[in-house]
Amino acid sequence: MPAAPARRSYRYYDLVMAAFVCVLLCANLIGVSKVTTVGGFSFSAGNLFFPLSYLFGDILTEVYGYARSRRVVWAGFGALAFAALMSAIVVHLPPAPGWTGQAVIEAAFGSTWRIALASLLGYWCGEFVNSFTLARMKVLTRGRWLWTRTIGSTLVGEAADTMIFYPLAFYGVWDNDLLLAVMGANYCIKVGWEVLATPVTYRIVSRLKRAEQEDYFDDKTDFNPFTLKV
């Protein structure tokens, strides 16, 4: 019986995964409900850093392929789900007599079930759309014009995330005009981040490809999002 082929090991894959999950958790726990206004634009403060997760997602798919990126998306989903569960439990535990920090905890981590669910669904759909789009564009362009893939996939992925998260989380809570303004501003900020980060993305992708001796093309990949098979 022939031996199974050895699975490739990578030096930096786990580190990129850890960075992705760290950015994702911080962006969703810190500032997601705070709306700020800068230069006439109103946007959710957490979205100053959330686009970094898409940058990491682009790097993962470009270097390691869709299947390995899929595992990272699910790792992030599990981390977000656990953070939402832990936050709900901690917030709703009865405070000790005389302890005065309950209002602070509720303000910082007291997301409603709507926000938690919207965040999970928006993230899941947006990241998979982003990864799938980049992987297919890479095959179609035969690896040329990286900027078209990173920006193009972000345009589609962030649109899916924005269109799912904000209406589910804040429709009927925020004024409709504010909701639309925040959605539009946040989408522009996210895509703008990706455009500005393109030179950095090029450098990281180039160095990772050389270090890992990998430049994966998803010619025969199963794009089913509901599997962890590599």
Rank of each mutant, 00 (worst) to 15 (best):
A81P: 10
A81F: 03
A81D: 11
A81Y: 03
A81H: 07
F82L: 15
F82R: 11
A83I: 12
A83Q: 08
A83S: 15
L85R: 00
L85A: 15
L85Q: 07
M86R: 13
M86K: 14
S87G: 13
A88Y: 12
A88G: 08
A88Q: 12
I89E: 10
I89G: 09
V90C: 10
V90Q: 13
V91M: 11
V91Q: 08
V91S: 10
L93S: 11
L93Q: 14
P94Y: 05
P94R: 06
P95R: 02
P95T: 00
P95M: 06
A96P: 07
G98E: 08
G98L: 02
W99D: 08
W99G: 03
T100F: 07
T100A: 15
T100S: 14
G101Y: 02
G101E: 10
Q102S: 09
Q102R: 07
V104I: 13
V104G: 03
V104P: 00
I105T: 09
I105H: 03
I105D: 00
E106C: 02
E106I: 02
A107Q: 10
A107D: 12
F109M: 15
S111D: 05
S111L: 09
T112E: 04
T112K: 03
T112Q: 01
R114S: 02
R114F: 01
R114E: 03
I115H: 10
I115C: 01
I115K: 03
I115E: 09
A116P: 09
A116R: 05
L117R: 04
A118I: 01
S119H: 04
L121R: 06
G122D: 08
G122P: 07
Y123A: 01
Y123K: 07
Y123W: 10
W124G: 12
C125K: 06
C125W: 14
G126T: 09
E127G: 03
E127C: 08
F128W: 04
F128N: 10
F128Y: 13
V129Y: 04
F132Y: 13
F132I: 13
F132K: 13
F132G: 04
T133S: 14
T133W: 01
T133I: 12
L134V: 11
A135F: 11
R136Y: 09
K138N: 12
K138L: 08
K138M: 10
V139P: 06
V139G: 06
L140S: 12
L140R: 14
L140P: 03
T141G: 09
R142N: 13
R142T: 13
R142E: 15
R142I: 01
R142A: 14
G143V: 08
G143S: 11
W145M: 13
W145C: 14
W145F: 15
L146T: 10
L146S: 12
T148V: 15
T148C: 15
R149H: 00
R149G: 14
T150H: 06
T150E: 07
T150R: 12
T150C: 11
I151G: 08
I151Q: 02
I151M: 05
G152M: 02
G152E: 00
G152A: 06
S153E: 01
S153C: 04
S153K: 05
T154L: 05
T154W: 00
T154K: 06
L155H: 01
L155K: 02
V156R: 00
V156D: 01
G157W: 04
G157S: 02
G157R: 01
E158S: 11
E158L: 11
